[in-house]
Amino acid sequence: MPVSSDPLIWIAAFYTIAATSYAFRDNILFKFSENTYIGAAAGHAIVMGIKNIRDYGWAHIMKGEMIYWVVFVLGVMLYFRFHRQYYWLYRYPIAFLVGNGVGISIRAAIHSDFIKQIIETAKPLTGATAFDTFNNIIIFIGVITALSHFIFTYEGMHKGTLGWMPKVGRWMILLALGASFGNTIMTRFGQYQGRILFLLRDWLGIVA
C-alpha cells in the first residue's frame, strides 16, 4: 500500500506523533496538540449539548408541553455560577441534578452492591469438585476479610483476637490490586497499539 495522500490522515498522523512526544520530553508540538485537544473537546461538548437541548427539551416545547420552559430557565441558571452577586442561583439546577443523580443510583445500589453480593457470598462452600470448593473458600475468606478491613468504627476489629481478619483482608486486597495493575498495563499497550497500527497502516501503508 502506498503512503496515504489523504490530508485527514496526515493531520491525524502529525497529532499522533505530537501527542506521543511528551512521553520523551515536553515540547512545543505537544503543547500545540494539547491546546488543540482542549479546544476541540470543549467545542464538541457545546455542539452535543445544543443538540441534546434541541432534541430532548425544545422538541417537547414544540409539542406544546410548556412546562419544559422551566427546565430551560433552570439551564440558564447554571451559568450564574460565574456571577459574583447572583452565583447562588446556580444552586437550584445543581440541586435538581444532585437529587436526581443520587436518587437514581442509590435505589439500585442497595440491590446490586449489597443484597446481590451478600446472596452470592452466603452460599454453600462445597462445589462440584474439590477445586471449586477450594475456590469458594478463598472467595469467602476474601469477602469477609476485605470487608473487615474497612470497619473502623469498632476498635477491636484491628487488634486483639480479631486483628488477623483485617490483616488478611489487606493481603487479599493487595493481591487483587496487583491483578488490577497487571490489567492496566494491558489496557495502555492495547490502546497505543491502535495508534501504531494507524501510523503504519493508514498513514505509511507499510502493513496490511
Binding site: K116, E120, A176, S180, N183, G190
Partner: peptide
C-alpha cells in the same frame, strides 16, 4: 483496568458476560 472492579457483578450474575478490554 476496570474489569477487576466490575467482576463482582459478573460473579453474581448481574452481568451475563464481560469483555475484558483488548
Amino acid at each position: 483496568m476496570m474489569t477487576t472492579s466490575m467482576k463482582p457483578y459478573y460473579d453474581s450474575g448481574q452481568l451475563k458476560g464481560l469483555l475484558d478490554g483488548v
